[in-house]
Amino acid sequence: MNLPGIEYLSLGLGIVLFLAGLWGIIHQKNIIKIIISFSVLDTSIHLILVSIGYMRNRTAPIIDSAVSKTDAASQVVDPLPQALVLTAIVIGVGITALMLTYALKLFNEKGTLEIDKFKSLKW
């Protein structure tokens, strides 16, 4: 694999998605849309982390016929960000499911998902 600049593509896409998600979280009024924005922001962080671990002209961190066991350190990309992203994806799934459950409870309580209608915690 020799694709010049793919790490810049992934990094740039990550930043764009991060800003889109942030904008959605602070600008949208509907709770479901806020949760979707949160998921977009979550994904953007995964993209940024993976592109930080990317290295040119290297292959996946799996020892097989393409990577020798003794010289792995000079042939594979960084395995650590990939492991962290694996953790982050699972946590993201859990958090999203939890937020959707809260949204369902809020809807049952008030009959609406517009965030402006929830004033109990405003002072």
Binding site: I62, Q82, L86
Partner: peptide
């Protein structure tokens, strides 16, 4: 063989 698995 999978280094990510070894780390995780």
């Amino acid at each position: 063989a999978n280094l990510v698995t070894a780390v995780v």
